[in-house]
Every structure is written in C-alpha cells, then in structure tokens.
C-alpha cells in the first residue's frame, strides 16, 4: 500500500509554475529519491506535502487519509515529518533541547522524551555536541541536527531535504548508513538530493523533477540511463554526445 500518494499537485508562484501536475507514490517501507537540477521544484513539493504552502491544485493522501488542506503541525502529528534544506536550528536552545522538542510529539513524559532524544543524538552522531547551543554548530552538525530532530518525532515518513549537501564524503557515508538503518527499522523515507550519487545506491525508486514537471519515476538503475534525465542534468549537447558514445559502445 502507498503510504504517500501525490496526485496532480500544482504550485504556482505568480507566473512561475514550480510544481506542474506532479503525481507519484511512496510505498511503505521503501526509500524514494526525489532528484532534479536546482530550481526543479523539489523543496516546493516538500513544502506542499507538509502543508507549509497550500497547493494550487491536486490532492495529497497520507496513510489512507487526505492531508491536502491540513496545517503543518497536523501533518507532522500524523507522521509525515521533514527537514529543512536551509537549516533551521532553534538557535538559542541546546542541541539536546532541539531534539527534545521533536521527541515531545509522541510523549508528554519528560523522561521518555529525554531517552528518545538521547537515542536520536547517538544515531545521528551528535552526542558530543549535546549541550552546545544549536546556533553554534558547524553546518554538517546542523544538517545532522535537522535529521535527529525530525527522527525524534518517531515519524512514519521521514522527508529529508538535501541533508547530505555540504557534508564531507565521510559524513555522507555515515549518513547513508544511518538512512539504511532507519529504513530497516520500518521508517519510510523520501529523500531529496541534488547530487545523484548520494541517493542512487540506496533508493528503491527515484522520481525526477525538471522545471516543475515529473520527467521520470523508475528504479535507480533505469533512471541513470534515461535520456530525459541525462538531458535535464547535463543539457542537450552533452546528452547527445553521451547517447552517441553509448551507441558507439553498443556497436563495439
């Protein structure tokens, strides 16, 4: 069963159509990648799904119910929780308190919430920053904090918006490990990555946006050979060269 179903979602900013009748599904227990060049409308789509922006058209269903017109906090309470690409630490609160706020979603008990927060800090490798003000973290730490805080809410669907951007390759590898562990623990993930290499090895399915339009939805193995995707990423000239080379290779 699909945990998330996005149907014909449209979002306009004046003349600009940031999402143009986008449809896809996210199956329970899978990792879905959402990729596309800068400005393709990935973050906007996240904003529509999580209720930050009202969609101009279309419908979104989550966990068997329509969430299209719900407020952000209502959607979070139902279990779809996201991170922000432009990090938003609760600056003057400590790293631990940031995560605690997330943990309070599922329990009002301070001790249970604290235990959950510690667990998420440890999963996201933040324990050493525990008592620091969140505003003072290095960017990689802030990205991990976004993830730990969302994770602390015990979401059904965790939506990550470019958490690996700005990370070193060691950090990326660690994040990939974490993501796989979360998937194994039963969390469904939807991951926006601008960089294809970060998401391709772990995704069950990849959705590609370009100019607000969905141009592909397929297994990663098929996506990397999809002409429209290559064209979107590298431009028509390179795409043709790439095609010619591949055909040459096929001949040879």
């Amino acid at each position: 069963m699909a945990l998330l179903e996005v149907r014909e979602v449209t979002k306009k900013f004046g003349e600009l159509v940031a999402n143009d009748r986008v449809s896809f599904t996210v199956e329970t227990g899978t990792i879905v990648g959402l990729i596309g060049p800068n400005g393709a409308g990935k973050t906007t789509l996240f904003n529509c799904i999580t209720g930050l922006y009202p969609a101009d058209g279309g419908a979104i269903h989550f966990d068997g119910r329509e969430i299209t017109a719900l407020k952000p906090y209502e959607i979070a309470r139902r279990g779809a929780v996201r991170t922000f690409q432009v990090v938003r630490p609760l600056k003057e609160m400590t790293v631990f308190d940031n995560v605690l706020v997330g943990a309070f979603l599922k329990t009002g008990d301070r001790r249970a919430a604290a235990a959950r927060a510690e667990e998420c800090l440890s999963i996201c490798n933040l324990t050493s920053f525990r008592d620091r003000p969140a505003g003072g973290l290095p960017i990689g730490g802030k990205k991990r904090l976004e993830m730990a805080r969302a994770l602390a809410t015990r979401p059904k669907l965790l939506m990550l918006d470019e958490v690996m951007a700005g990370m070193t390759s060691t950090e990326i590898n660690a994040s990939v490990e974490v993501i796989l562990r979360l998937r194994d623990s039963g969390i469904t993930l939807m991951i926006v990555e601008h960089v294809m290499e970060g998401i391709m090895p772990i995704a069950d399915k990849v959705v590609v946006l370009d100019g607000g339009i969905k141009i592909a939805e397929d297994a990663p193995g098929n996506i990397v050979n999809d002409e429209r995707v290559i064209e979107a990423y590298l431009g028509p000239k390179y795409s043709q060269r790439f095609k010619a080379r591949r055909e040459g290779a096929d001949l040879g």
């Binding site: 952000p72 938003r88 609760l90």
Partner: peptide, 26 residues
C-alpha cells in the same frame, strides 16, 4: 521549564515554522 509546554514556548520563540514542522500547534 522542565515540561513539554515550556519547551514548546521556547521552540515557538526560536522558530515558529520549525516548531510546527515538529507537530507544535504554535
């Protein structure tokens, strides 16, 4: 200060949209 409501107060101060994204009815 030690209870959920107190943390929610500070979370709303530090970032209303962020708090909402974590299920807080600001």
């Amino acid at each position: 200060e030690g209870h959920r409501f107190g943390y929610y107060l500070r979370a709303v101060r530090e970032g209303q949209e962020t708090a909402e994204s974590l299920g807080v009815n600001s």
